[in-house]
Simulated assay, not measured.
Amino acid sequence: MRALTWQGTRDVRVESVADPAIKDPSDVVVKVTSTGICGSDLHLYNVLGAYLEPGDILGHEAMGLVEAVGPEVSTLSTGDRVVVPFNVSCGQCFMCDQGLHSQCETTQVREHDKGAALFGYTKLYGQVPGGQAEYLRVPFGDTLPVKVPKGPPDERFVYLSDVLPTAWQAVEYADIPPGGSVTVLGLGPIGLMSARIALHRGARLVLGVDRVPARLQRAREAGVRTLDLTGHGKRLVTEVRNLTDGRGTDSVIDAVGMEAHGAPLAAAAQRVTALLPDALARPLMEHAGVDRLPALHMAIDLVRRGGTVSVSGVYGGAADPMPLLTMFDKQIQLRMGQANVRAWVDDILPLLDDSDPLGVEGFATHVLPLEEAPRAYAMFQAKGDGMIKTLLRP
């Protein structure tokens, strides 16, 4: 089959690799019909090469048709249409029972003291082959894939793999009071969908902050009040407080993560670390790594006293300096973590009907053949051609 493989920092290639096969009796193999490029894939593209090997298959946002079924699978048949959550979770352990599928005890990567394995996301998370490929082996066939109806276009459902549950959890964790306010930092796919969900769930004021004109425009079209970080700069905190009786918003969602703009020293350190041999890069990242933190520090400044900061952007630093005095003084609640995809499916599925209240159809700005994935990664990294969300078609 053809699959997108990692070959080095900013070097991904579509190559012919072995087809996946049933390994465990509870497996299924899915013929991928649509697969997304996620902002967190750019962390692999740029920063986390020390935990990848040439040939690793990337991608964790896939859906398609069941091609083969293991002998112990009873709920799926060949030809069924499914979405594959990005957490590799069993659905039956203690953590899954708590709705913490990203901490699944069956697939926890204990070698690196990490939570559940993830599709297409480094040795830290199990080195499981990903879904930017023609076929994908999916464990736990009876409990992990989400069966969806045939007929509507893939874009109706593909975001159940990551974007929708990640954004839903971001809003859930933000704990926006009824009729309350929220600032969303970063209007990429997760931030934009978080803003849409917050509006859908009744937030009175949703502020969206970004510096990319195309992202700001899409957010405005969805009813978000936007603030251009380029134009506001240090005045952003004052502007948000002016809109909220001097307090700041009830909640802030950080949908940016480790590669935020505005931290040149941390950015330089990330670039240098990415070029080091793995044996040097890994201990540096694990014990002295520092993320670019302007977005997270801004979230702490923007939220009102007693408010909640919800972090959905991925961070990976081991020595990130945090303003604990300010956090303590403002009595901030802080929630974060990988999305527990399966926990939110029942809440989201009813919204994926013809009324499309979250605007999933047309959410992708680009739909490209899998063979063009390397060009798409480079374009996404450069924020070129108005690219916000890309789907690949194998």
Score class of each variant (00 low, 15 high):
V109S: 01
R81S: 04
D56E: 15
Q169H: 11
S26Q: 12
P139Q: 09
L302V: 14
C90W: 04
G307E: 07
V256D: 02
D19M: 00
G79R: 13
R218N: 04
G8L: 09
L76H: 15
A68E: 15
W344C: 10
K383D: 11
A68Y: 14
V206I: 04
M298F: 12
G306Q: 13
P369S: 12
L227P: 05
G233A: 05
R201Y: 09
L391V: 09
A279D: 15
G59W: 15
C104P: 09
Y135G: 05
G313Q: 09
L192D: 10
P277D: 13
D291E: 01
L160I: 08
L185D: 04
G188A: 07
K147E: 11
R110K: 14
L324E: 02
P323G: 13
D228A: 10
T106N: 01
G179I: 01
D27M: 11
A263M: 10
K330D: 08
G8R: 09
F140W: 08
V29W: 14
L243M: 15
A50T: 04
S89C: 04
S310R: 06
H366K: 10
P145Y: 12
G317M: 12
A268S: 13
V138C: 02
E172A: 14
D24R: 15
N87G: 01
E105G: 01
D353G: 10
M387Y: 00
A343I: 11
V171E: 09
H60R: 14
L236Q: 00
D11C: 09
K31H: 13
T5A: 11
E134Y: 02
L236V: 03
D245Y: 12
H232S: 08
L76V: 10
H112A: 01
D353Q: 06
A343D: 06
G386W: 11
G91A: 11
R375S: 12
I332D: 04
P178G: 06
R201I: 01
M379W: 09
N340H: 09
R282L: 01
L4T: 06
V240C: 05
G49Q: 04
L368T: 00
Q331W: 03
A170T: 05
V171Q: 03
R235T: 08
D346M: 05
V128E: 07
A319F: 13
R218T: 02
V206R: 02
N87F: 05
M193Y: 09
